[in-house]
Design a binder for these strands. Structure first.
Lengths: 188, 188
DNA sequence: TACAATAGCTAATGTGATTAGCTTTTTCGG
DNA sequence: CCGAAAAAGCTAATCACATTAGCTATTGTA
């Protein structure tokens, strides 16, 4: 019996599985059960095996996040755009912990595709920064700083207990304001 | 034949293997070959299996890094301490990419031990910040900001090509100065 | 020196990925 | 509408590791 599911459908379901369990929980065996087929059949969709599926999940995640953070900054600029962008990133991670884990695997694959998939997100950050009067080089630096911070904060947040008296929310706010302050300094 | 290697020796060798290949490249099979024994024998040292070894590698890495960055800031204060600390972190990661990967697995384990292992590093950051006149809460925020940035930057750096005209060195400098500027602003 | 603990070994099992080769559906050009 | 041919499944078999069970040799010490 055919399932009628496209390659994209399967990737989406695999991404959901990652969020439900963890990125490592997405096995061909488990995915096959979920789809009601046998695991060898998955090679008809992903001839490159689990590796190919993982790459696709990773790319899917970046595209999804790109879309969400792009939405978040529409019609905004300066600090508003910047802050809302960062919040959207953080919110995405909190709702997609397993997928985000898989997204970090861009390490293991060719940077090429990942670059294309995440350049949207980078572009959004760039545009949010366009009104700050930075040079091109400063803009590159700033994008990297933000990316590094967001990525690191998200990784830490996913794993740290929420019982510390100083909340992560406040720390996130503090860091954004501090970095914005630093960026403002540059112009002086 | 006995190898005469202690548990700590084996963890150290496993950490070297991680750096030579990758964190995932540390399998019981490969490690056993490296040690000249059979893989089931490793259960005599790590009754908890591969999982226990991975946890130990993770802890070993944090202790090692703690020592190095502590060394790096001895006798320094303010911006000097701060900047040298960050450089030491980054240098550690560049020399221990595989181990650093394994260190990120603190996610998967009890935070307890990792907290103890990395609290040294956090303490160093705290002390480096002590001369900035921040409130306790601001200090917590700042430590988190720095940790997030360092962790994110390191992850990005490990995987990004070095062919971009704007170097990562410059971006790292830029980010540190920007954050320092932002921190200085707080006092105003 | 005897003996308990230690550290090794072989054989066997289990899980998941992957491959090979066969079968059933679809799809589509004629 | 018919018959390839492609697509999407399936079963059986193999492989790589991790892990377990049970046996043996070494060692350090009472």
């Amino acid at each position: 019996m055919r399932t009628g599911l496209s390659r994209e459908d399967i990737i989406k379901i695999a991404a959901e599985m990652a969020d439900e369990k963890s990125a490592a929980g997405v096995t061909f065996k488990a995915l096959a059960v979920r789809l009601g087929i046998k695991s060898p059949s998955l090679y008809k969709h992903f001839s490159g095996g689990l590796d190919e599926l993982n790459r696709e999940i990773m790319l899917y995640g970046w595209r999804l996040m790109d879309g969400e953070i792009t939405q978040a900054v529409i019609g905004k600029e300066k600090d508003d755009a910047f802050i809302d962008l960062c919040y959207a990133y953080r919110k995405f991670v909190s709702r997609h912990q397993g997928l985000y884990e898989a997204m970090q695997w861009y390490n293991m694959y060719d940077s090429e595709e990942h670059l294309r998939a995440s350049e949207g997100a980078v572009g959004v950050i760039c545009r949010a920064l366009s009104s700050y009067g930075l040079t091109e080089e400063q803009k590159v630096h700033t994008v990297r700083m933000i990316r590094a911070f967001l990525q690191g904060f998200s990784t830490i947040e996913v794993n740290i207990g929420k019982d510390h008296p100083v909340t992560l929310d406040d720390s996130f706010d503090f860091a954004l304001k501090t970095m914005l302050g630093g960026i403002a300094d540059i112009q002086r």
